[in-house]
Design a protein around this nucleic acid. Structure first.
Lengths: 187, 187
DNA sequence: TAATATAGTTTCGACTCGAAACTAAATAAA
DNA sequence: TTTATTTAGTTTCGAGTCGAAACTATATTA
């Protein structure tokens, strides 16, 4: 057994996911990368919900991402708003229409079905394996790994349901700790 | 644990693979889908090495595939030749230049590295899980699953190293039985 | 106050993708 | 044996992806 099979299966599953995405969003001419960006925005925290965050997350250039975000905005799936403190920064948020679409498309219906056919042991092994592969690949490519605050070494628990980010010196709500962060450092 | 994580990890790994593909083939402006097609052609058997085979394998439309193959040909990575018996059919083969590129790009260096970090048990669990997910997703989407003759129910072993395809009524060499087939039916 | 760094946008050219119209060859039907 | 019909591919169109490079505007640093 070698890594070629892994490569092949991932690419083929991704192809299938792409086809399904296009079908779900036919009326909007929705592209796979648009859905990925939309999903990221919906799950990113207040330090990460920017074009720059999307760029790092997807590993694309800022120019490419800028175009994709422009289309998402013109389709009414996201909203751009200026940052109050820093005039260079644009804040991204998902609109109700965007959320509706997300719920329809992620996870893909056929993947959800396939997932259900696996027993719990195989589900865990699969996701854990992929997680490790992704992590190693990101490391090798010098990319930021992202992750939720709940698993970050900068996150300290002050008391019950009171969290604090040592990096930004700000308080975090329990909900905050479930969002993706650009600055995430595993413990 | 739910299937969202699976969806997310696969998409992100695929993004990374795409970036690496573009870097490896910068001079040719090589796109991820071109590499997938090239890889398929190099692994497909004599019933499957056609534009139609690529189309079914990648789950795209024939028009899209036709364009991608035209670029692969103009870059000297594949060769098109007419079928002797049926004038409608085009046979695809990978050129030496195509093979050279393939060996450089698949499996991706960073994935090979990540793969090496897993122990054998995790490797098997990962690949088996993905295989099952892919299979179920293809079934749900009414797609042909593909597979190598060695695992096909039409393949019967006449004697040592002598195989026979009951569907096409033709002899198969041992090497044939390791190639991908459009008509594959699991035993 | 000027130099530089950072966050985004715009433009360009090559490519992807589906849809639909098209060509040519093989098969089925009349 | 002509005349459909099916099958394998190609071509064209329009919207989108993508990197590269030039560009704008707002911080930050010197």
């Amino acid at each position: 057994m070698n890594s070629e099979l892994l490569h092949e299966y991932i690419e083929r599953i991704s192809c299938l996911l792409g086809s399904e995405t296009r079908v779900v969003g036919t009326d909007l001419n929705l592209q796979p990368v648009q859905l990925n960006a939309l999903n990221y925005i919906s799950r990113s925290n207040r330090y990460s919900n920017t074009p720059q965050g999307v760029t790092e997350y997807l590993g694309l250039t800022k120019g490419t991402v800028s175009q994709t975000l422009a289309i998402l905005e013109s389709n009414g799936l996201i909203k751009k708003s200026p940052d109050k403190r820093d005039g260079r920064i644009v804040r991204l948020s998902v609109t109700p229409a965007g959320n509706k679409l997300l719920r329809k498309a992620i996870p893909s219906p056929s993947m959800r079905n396939a997932w259900g056919e696996l027993d719990r042991r195989d589900q865990n092994a699969l996701v854990e394996g992929l997680k490790q592969v992704l992590f190693e690949m990101q490391k090798k490519n010098g990319m930021q790994a992202f992750g939720i605050c709940g698993t970050c070494r900068f996150n300290s628990k002050k008391e019950e349901k009171k969290f604090f980010c040592e990096l930004t010196q700000e308080n975090l709500s329990p909900k905050d700790t479930e969002l993706l962060c650009r600055e995430h450092q595993p413990t």
